[in-house]
Nucleic acid binder design. Structure first.
Length: 431
DNA sequence: TTTTGAGTTGTTCGA
DNA sequence: GTCGAACAACTCAAA
């Protein structure tokens, strides 16, 4: 049997048909395009069976597949080790070209290199595209060509470059949809991939409060969050469209999107931050790392309402308000003197928007060990934070049902913990 | 090369 | 109640 000549577009964390650069370029190919997604066993094997993020990926793929079905095409969904899957695809089709959008995490870089080599060996052309970010690694650098490690000058340069760019062209790939490979691949259920439905769900994003972001962002009771982060994580929204829109809408909100790229380029240029302090002079801190303290933090039973409400919101929904993330992170590192890596790992497990670069970057920021981090003597006072940002206790009552029935005592005295944290850091920081 | 200014999100203390 | 300084110097970026 003669194998059909095809191109393949490989979806990874860009789960949309709309304004997807790599997909657009793929559809310009002279070969019909098979859209592919691989559930990567090297990642999935470490996840719980009810991981809501896998559910969201599955749901997003299902929507894409529904769209494709309208034009007599379908998504090819595979599960296994990526190299083995690609070997099988090369067996089944005469693959001429492969298109995908770049992914900058250490694991992804390694994986993509292996696949690119496999394709090259088989004389298949592969093309990768910048789609996940406005500016990728080494596009925003200091005059000497080295990466920025301080946010503000990075942001200034980023904005300068963005303003000088030609206006963003939105790509309407739908005019090219006729070039999708006609197929009727069967779409697997979540159970067939080895997962189960979770009660926790990614919610649709909501941009209606962005205009007032600078005024409302610190008040968790208002629930004016955009809920964009998981969508950015999995690429169900286009960063180009979002930035283009946010640019005229709200500077502070835009700045958060620039933080995203700042931490991405930090991870790319300094991959050691995944498991090491960015500032190695902080390596000598004597963490207490007490298991039972960590468990109380995880379960939201520290006795500090702001901390507990945040952790319970996380445990129940997979989200946590940004202001509260700072409070719980500072509490873990400074009040409990637990290594930021413990907290980072817990967030990685629970957050729907979990993204390696931002998680590591922000945890190191809170711990004071990161680039451009909070100074070590800055210790958030959970009671003052509550008074300032949830004065009426609306947020904490939402997540702590028993709050008015008499709430437990703090597990550690603030003044004591603050002094201990500053003294411990001071003693541990190498000169 | 040297100098200068600046650095996400805080808290506490004392005048 | 309000305000500035201290917390601790240090490193980075740019001129």
């Amino acid at each position: 049997m003669i194998k059909q000549k095809v191109a393949v577009f490989w979806f990874r964390r860009d789960l949309r048909l709309d304004d997807n650069l790599g997909l657009f370029r793929a559809l310009e190919s002279k070969f019909p395009v098979i859209p592919l997604f691989i559930f990567d066993e090297d990642i999935l094997d470490n996840l719980p069976k009810k991981d809501p993020r896998v559910g969201f990926i599955h749901e997003s793929l299902s929507k894409i597949n529904d769209e494709l079905n309208k034009i007599e095409s379908s998504l090819l969904v595979k599960k296994g080790k990526t190299v083995a899957i690609w070997e099988s695809i090369i067996q089944d089709f005469d693959v001429k070209e492969v298109f995908f959008n770049k992914d900058y995490e250490p694991y992804a870089i390694k994986r993509d290199l292996a696949i690119s080599q496999l394709l090259e060996t088989n004389k298949i052309k592969s093309f990768s595209f910048k789609d996940q970010v406005i500016f990728e690694e080494m596009e925003i650098t200091k005059a000497d060509g080295l990466p920025y490690t301080v946010y503000t000058p990075y942001k200034n340069k980023w904005l300068e470059k963005y303003k000088s760019m030609a206006p963003v062209q939105e790509m309407d790939a739908s005019i090219l949809f006729s070039n999708f490979y006609k197929s009727n691949f069967s779409f697997p259920t979540l159970e067939q991939i080895g997962f189960e439905e979770s009660a926790i769900k990614v919610v649709p994003h909501n941009l209606k409060f962005v205009g007032n972001y600078h005024e409302t962002r610190d008040f968790p009771a208002l629930d004016t969050t955009s809920y964009l982060s998981p969508h950015l994580r999995f690429g169900t929204v286009s960063i180009r469209k979002l930035v283009n829109w946010a640019f005229h809408k709200n500077d502070v909100f835009l700045s958060e999107l620039i933080w995203r790229e700042f931490f991405m380029q930090i991870l790319f240029s300094f991959p050691k931050v995944v498991s090491n302090n960015f500032k190695s002079s902080y390596d000598g801190i004597q963490w207490l790392n007490k298991e039972e303290d960590f468990k109380r933090w995880c379960s939201g039973t520290t006795g500090y309402p702001m901390v507990d409400a945040g952790m319970r919101q996380l445990n129940e929904t997979g989200y946590m308000h940004n202001r509260v993330r700072m409070v719980v992170a500072s509490f873990l590192c400074k009040h409990l003197l637990i290594n930021w890596q413990w907290g980072e790992a817990y967030f990685a497990e629970k957050l729907l928007d979990y993204e390696l670069s931002a998680n590591v970057g922000n945890w190191q920021w809170a711990a004071g060990t990161g680039c451009d981090a909070a100074p070590y003597f800055r210790v958030f006072n959970p009671e003052i934070q509550l008074k300032k940002f949830d004065e009426k206790g609306i947020y904490i009552r939402k997540w702590i049902k028993e709050f008015d029935l008499g709430y437990g005592k703090p597990m550690v005295d603030h003044a004591f913990a603050r002094d201990r944290a500053i003294a411990t850091y001071k003693a541990g920081i190498l000169k």
